[in-house]
Nucleic acid binder design. Structure first.
Length: 429
RNA sequence: GGAGAGUUGGCAGAGUGGUAAUGCACCGGACUCGAAAUCCGGCGAACCUAUUUUAUGAUAGGCGCGCAGGUUCAAAUCCUGUACUCUCCUCCA
């Protein structure tokens, strides 16, 4: 959520900044008119409440002295009615203002390319050589099904489309991948967390998935009490700090978690219908940071480096892009995507998204810290995948495939695979 | 699932209709070579608004006793709903 004071102070700047994020200047004008109205009503009602408080004290004194106070009480009856009326109007205006305010995306950083969508993203760097096998690379789903380590058909029968069974060495490989990631992040100073996988609406609002993106998630309701299956560990990890006032000396905070992620993928029908790329349920290792404002962009670079470290150690070619203003996620001021090379698709695919949300989530979730002067300040929050496990497995299958259909295990994963260096039809189960 | 108790400032803890005691902690001062102890004084979350100043504030006011409503001139206090915590019973990986 943006700071209404900031919008009030420089509306033209905000309009300009949010233009490429699908926000019209009319929306900002409407928002500001509600803000003006709201403040007028606040002054009115607060003046009346001050009067009520003063007179009520007088009534209390009189009553204590056994004097008659019926004139004051009669007068206050009207004041009370006036207050009620103004407060009702105030609630209405507040509601209208917040409806717009909580749906405004974050302001892109000055370093972010301005543009409408992914076509205006900019490549920052390319790492690792794209492999040139002497054979035509096959898709990971073909490799996986042939080895018997992935079963999409039976998963479709049991759960529906966009689900999968990992079997034998496939399951083992995924476990190796995320254990490796968690171990690496622990070395970088992240605290490992196992969070709740279902969260309430307040948490979903805190990280700004709600109210705008309710259709992208699965929500279960028991006795009228709705809980949402987390679409990313960002939600429970960031909300771990909700309603807290941290000590400046304890910042930055680094946490990491492996969780399943659940996404309805509404609106992506027909895209990536095969393979591990776009599932309703997938494992992801997430990194979350809470930092002081002046350090958050430096922390974003370090966070991105932590994610890149995984790809480098796995020997997977990738590139880093900075998302343009129109393509970045709702709460992000700046996002780097890491895209891994998928030989069979002959293109890069996203495996990580690293974002600095500034105080956008902190304002919603009340994540604050006390600075050296004892003043409370909003902290900055960051999050990044490190990495999506399923997509990483897909990338390993494709990049490490051999002509005979077997898949070589990246060196760093061999210890996690119990010494196995290659998945073949023979050892796959 | 059943029964009961509870939720108040960083912590502890009073307060059953008149506008949040008190203690500890914290800050300043005195005493002291310094500290502790003691004494004196101060400070009570977070948030919002107005005025003023612009830097990191000041002043006034509102709000605030888990949350949301209601009754009342006035609600921590009464009523309704709800969340959570604890204890006991039941059940359970």
């Amino acid at each position: 959520m943006l700071d209404i004071k900031l919008i009030r102070k420089d509306p033209e700047w905000i309009k300009n900044k949010l233009a490429s994020r699908g926000v019209t200047s009319d929306e900002i004008d409407e928002l500001l008119s509600y803000d003006t109205k709201r403040r007028e009503l606040l002054v009115k009602t607060e003046t009346l409440k001050e009067k009520r408080n003063t007179v009520s004290q007088g009534i209390a004194t009189k009553k204590r002295n056994k004097e008659d106070a019926s004139d004051e009480i009669a007068a206050m009856k009207q004041v009370g009615a006036d207050i009620k009326e103004i407060d009702t109007e105030l609630d209405d205006v507040n509601g209208k203002m917040n409806y717009i305010l909580v749906r405004l995306p974050n302001i892109p950083d000055d370093s972010v390319p301005v543009g409408p969508d992914e076509s205006t993203n900019v490549e920052i760097r390319k790492v690792g050589a794209i492999p040139t096998e002497g054979f035509k690379p096959r898709h990971h789903w073909d490799i996986g099904e042939e080895l018997g380590i992935l079963d999409f058909d039976q998963a479709t029968k049991v759960a529906g489309s966009r689900f999968v069974y990992y079997l034998g060495m496939g399951a083992r490989l995924e476990r190796a991948v995320y254990n490796f990631m968690l171990d690496e992040h622990q070395k970088e100073g992240y605290t490992e967390v196992i969070p709740p996988y279902l969260v309430n609406n307040t948490a979903m609002f805190g990280t700004s998935q709600f109210p705008k993106f309710t259709e992208d998630v699965y929500t279960v309701t028991v006795d009228e009490n709705p809980l949402t299956l987390i679409p990313t560990a960002e939600v429970p990890l960031t909300n771990y700090f909700a309603d807290k006032i941290l000590d400046e000396k304890d910042l930055p905070k680094y946490v990491t978690a492996l969780t399943p992620c659940f996404r309805s993928e509404a609106g992506s029908a027909g895209r990536d219908t095969r393979g591990l790329i776009r599932m309703h349920q997938f494992n992801k290792v997430e990194m979350v940071k809470v930092s002081k404002p002046e350090e958050s962009y430096n922390e974003l670079e370090k966070l991105t480096a932590n994610a890149e470290n995984i790809l480098q150690k796995l020997g997977l070619p990738y590139h880093v892009i900075v998302l343009s203003s129109g393509d970045a996620s709702f709460s992000s001021a700046k996002t780097y995507d890491l895209e891994v090379w998928m030989p069979a698709q002959d293109k890069y695919r996203e495996v990580s998204s690293c974002s600095n949300c500034l105080d956008f989530q902190a304002r919603r979730a009340h994540i604050r810290y006390r600075d050296a002067n004892g003043k409370t300040q909003l902290a900055h929050t960051l999050n990044g995948s490190g990495l999506a496990a399923g997509r990483t497995v897909a990338a390993i299958l494709e990049n490490y495939q051999n002509a005979d259909g077997s898949v070589t295990i990246p060196d760093v994963l061999v210890p996690y695979m119990g010494g196995v260096t290659k998945i073949t039809k023979e050892n796959a189960k």
